[in-house]
Design a protein around this nucleic acid. Structure first.
Lengths: 209, 209
DNA sequence: TTATATACAAACAGGAATGTATGTAAATGA
DNA sequence: TCATTTACATACATTCCTGTTTGTATATAA
């Protein structure tokens, strides 16, 4: 059983990606070998080299499978709806909570995050990934700033701080939360209260009426 | 020139540690070889194996050299001074700013942080490091909570949020800031405004008088 | 002064991982 | 139907890293 149909081939490719995610998670990216991945996927290294150039290539495939949809999702929840009079602070809160809920319910996403955050060394070819992540951060901060700007215009803010400062504070808070959420694998420290932490964070800047 | 005096030996040991830091930073921990480290330190692998068991052992040496003093420093600035009537919110702010200033001025510390955050994969023997870091986090959160408790007692807080919630929010904010500070190697995005971000964060919870 | 332990250097042995080259049966297109 | 890709499996060559062992000149202690 050698030559497969196109659909079969695409299926093996996906099997390799899934196998790689499991192997990366277990052994870290650097110590993962193409042999490990091939074995986990029930193929030989030949198949892996057919579908991918090398390990880095597989890493990018894993990453894109999770991050491209994620960025879209964040964009969606934060983009102002033209004819909506919904509270922008609620939008921010919902966006953050959505991401946490996605992480909770989506194993693939959770594992990918874990690999990217604590199972990968950002050197050489991987350094570019860091730059991409920083760029994405800038975009998110801008969305947050715009939302806080709208909140300010609507008189919803309890603080004289600039929308920019609020956006950065929220972004850093959420970055820290994501890291802790991932590192707190047994869930005893941060995972269980993540949503509450987000709500507290947002309440801190809501004007009480 | 073989057998050295005890002082000479200690000096080579330190040279190896410094060399390892440089090599880890450049190539990531996993891809760093004892040969790389030995060459950088102008010794042979024989010397490295004499002073350390293996690569992990060197990693721990690097880590302890920076983290043990750091934890002490944080403890110092956050611990309540008995006869002091200093504003606890100022104490928190000073503690966070101190850490950032240390990072700015201390190359060794900065490089070590970078290695720990983005040049190391937390698998196998390194997984325990994560647990230690989580434990340290808990301790810091407790110190923060106590400080916010004092601030509340003194009526300094602008929010009805619990000291615990404030402590966690600050901790996550600062964790995120540290990550961004390190990743933002060229300093264009976060480094230059880190102190301002801390001040904004703290102002958000200061009662205006 | 001499025996011993120290602080390494140098040599050795072994496994492992990577990339490539080659083989091959079956799907696909003309 | 037949030539050509395709989708892999297998085999090969090479490089690299690790841990250990052995050798040795010299501090150091007795």
């Amino acid at each position: 059983m050698v030559r497969k149909t196109k659909e079969d081939a695409e299926l093996t490719r996906q099997r390799i990606v899934n196998a790689a995610r499991a192997v990366f998670l277990k052994r870290g990216v650097s110590k993962s070998t193409l042999e490990h991945i091939a074995t986990e996927a029930n193929v030989t290294r030949g198949a892996v080299y057919w579908h991918f150039e090398n390990k880095t290539d597989i890493f990018h495939a894993i990453r894109e499978q999770v991050f491209l949809p994620l960025i879209d999702s964040i964009d969606d929840t934060l983009t102002p709806v033209a004819n909506s009079n919904d509270n922008p602070l609620n939008q921010i809160e919902a966006s953050l909570c959505n991401t946490i809920n996605d992480l909770s319910s989506n194993l693939e996403m959770r594992e990918t995050y874990e690999i990217i955050m604590i199972k990968c060394e950002y050197v050489d070819e991987f350094a570019s990934v860091l730059h991409q992540m920083l760029h994405n951060c800038s975009c998110i901060v801008e969305k947050l700033e715009a939302a806080y700007e709208r909140a300010k215009a609507q008189g919803l803010l309890a603080t004289p701080l600039s929308p920019r400062a609020l956006a950065l504070d929220t972004h850093l808070f959420f970055g820290g939360l994501l890291h802790m959420w991932i590192k707190d694998a047994d869930g005893s420290r941060f995972r269980y209260q993540a949503i509450d932490l987000i709500k507290s964070h947002m309440n801190l800047r809501r004007k009480q009426n």
